[in-house]
């Protein structure tokens, strides 16, 4: 038995490496941030000028992939014209700095940066080129937007990838359109504006701010546990209904049939 276990040491090593690598990669990025030892150590005592602070944070956390001028170091994309909105979206959702090795940046449970740090970096990146600013103004007042319009715009422009319920969906070759239930109003607006990753851009001219706010309002509605008919089964449509029907409902009916067929004691 011993001999068999060690017959392919190379394979075993590979398996271990694969199991550990992505995790360590993510941990390296995460711990570099939390311990504050990753760069110059300047993050612990931040300068009063946000641009200077942002530059320091950028050089510490982003420049190794995106270049000191945001020009991008292949395969990482250039971000000098991404604007503050893109930086705020990517960093506040925890997609950047890149964590796990995957075919797309994935949302982290928590961003690695505080809101102020993110702001500082966003402001700094904005100075590198031309890109949209953080749409703080435009998001204002989404609570009063037209939800019915939002639903229509959502189903026309968003549902094809994120599904009717905002639960996300499959893209080609294992990529995914993410679940929208954790996105904040600002992040939703930013995503439409800058088109992160493979998402297309929806400019403010072709999808005016009022319609974007309406979409935010509709997504906020989808986030409510508003289930008049009871358990929503993940709002995945007929697939989860069918699974529940077979293993839940029909299973109970068959169990009753078995009960009827068993002789009483």
């Amino acid at each position: 038995m011993q001999a068999r276990a060690f017959r392919r040491p190379a394979a075993a090593l590979l398996a271990v490496a694969f199991a550990v690598l992505p995790a360590t990669g993510a941990q390296a990025a995460d711990s570099a941030r939390t311990s504050g030892t990753g760069g110059s150590g300047s993050t612990t005592s931040h300068p009063s000028d946000p641009l200077v602070w942002g530059k320091l944070l950028y050089e510490e956390g982003c420049a190794s992939c995106h270049g000191l001028q945001g020009q991008g170091i292949a395969p990482s994309p250039a971000i000098k014209d991404s604007g503050a909105a893109a930086v705020d979206f990517e960093v506040s959702t925890g997609r950047m700095p890149l964590g796990t090795i995957a075919n797309q940046a994935l949302r982290r449970a928590h961003s690695l940066y505080t809101a102020e740090e993110t702001q500082a970096m966003a402001q700094y990146v904005a100075t590198l080129g031309n890109g949209p600013a953080i749409p703080t103004q435009q998001v204002q007042g989404w609570e009063n937007a037209d939800m019915a319009l939002g639903g229509q715009v959502f189903r026309t422009n968003c549902a094809q990838c994120h599904s009717f319920s905002g639960q996300g969906g499959a893209l080609t070759w294992g990529k995914q359109a993410p679940n929208l239930m954790k996105a904040t109003p600002t992040q939703i607006y930013e995503a439409m504006l800058v088109g992160p990753n493979n998402m297309p851009k929806f400019s403010d001219q072709t999808l005016p701010p009022a319609e974007k706010r309406a979409v935010i309002k509709y997504i906020e509605f989808l986030r409510q546990p508003d289930n008049p008919g009871g358990l929503d089964l993940g709002r995945l449509g007929p697939v989860s209904e069918g699974l529940f029907g077979w293993f839940g409902g029909f299973g109970i009916l068959v169990a009753i049939a078995i009960w009827i067929g068993v002789k009483a004691k």
Partner: peptide, 25 residues
Amino acid sequence: VTINPVWLFGPYVPNQVSAGSQPDW
């Protein structure tokens, strides 16, 4: 248990579609 929440799907218009469009089992 909710089944077929048509209000979430929206009315049919031939220019809209949802990801995960599936028929009943």
